[in-house]
Write a protein that binds this DNA or RNA. Structure first.
Lengths: 95, 95
DNA sequence: TGCCTATTTGGTCAAATAGCCAAATAGTGG
DNA sequence: CCACTATTTGGCTATTTGACCAAATAGGCA
């Protein structure tokens, strides 16, 4: 048992933040470039308030950060390593 | 957009299966050795039915497999790559 | 066979999550 | 200051999740 119970909770929160189809999509887009809420919303097709809430969940997990520029809020990935999830998840699915 | 909507759902299911403190703990234990339900339950301290359900969630996501030997069901990791999640998650938390 | 141990399944309840709409906020530019 | 655009927040409902207990199953062995 490498970590304490409390640590598992913190770690699970990070995974939980990623564990949603829309949020995985967002992470993948942000891996390539910053985007603002409006443009992400266009790609996703949900209500903009829904997208905003997904973003805020990713942000409070520490996976993305935001920056306001002009009229818009731009989000970007903090750590590219989350993209390793995709290849692992894909290989799990293939097995 | 690399994947179709349906694919994001399948991928999210794999992450969802991991995204729980107890299940992360289980994955970490199984990374080192096989274990049976009873012994995992001892380490975790929840009801055995709760642990069994966690295991079945991990199993149906394809993260672990099980094998019955003698009186017990032994679980083991399918793919060690899920352990990369831990180091990434840890580095996200540190930032 | 019948008991025992290990595991899974079903029921129930409380809590968390996801989505939408409407309303509030924040900043820009006329 | 006002109107406009972008974003966030609050309220609500439906659904999913996690935990426990009790009951059902599955094998092994006396």
């Amino acid at each position: 048992m490498k970590f304490k119970k409390e640590n598992y909770e913190i770690m699970a929160d990070v995974l939980k933040a990623m564990a949603h189809p829309t949020r995985m999509f967002i992470v993948e887009v942000l891996n390539e470039r910053e985007e603002c809420v409006k443009d992400l919303t266009k790609m996703i097709g949900d209500d903009i308030s829904t997208v905003s809430k997904h973003l805020s969940k990713l942000k409070s997990a520490g996976i993305i950060t935001s920056e306001k520029r002009g009229n818009c809020v731009y989000y970007k990935l903090v750590c590219k390593c989350v993209m390793t999830f995709f290849s692992c998840v894909t290989s799990v699915i293939e097995k």
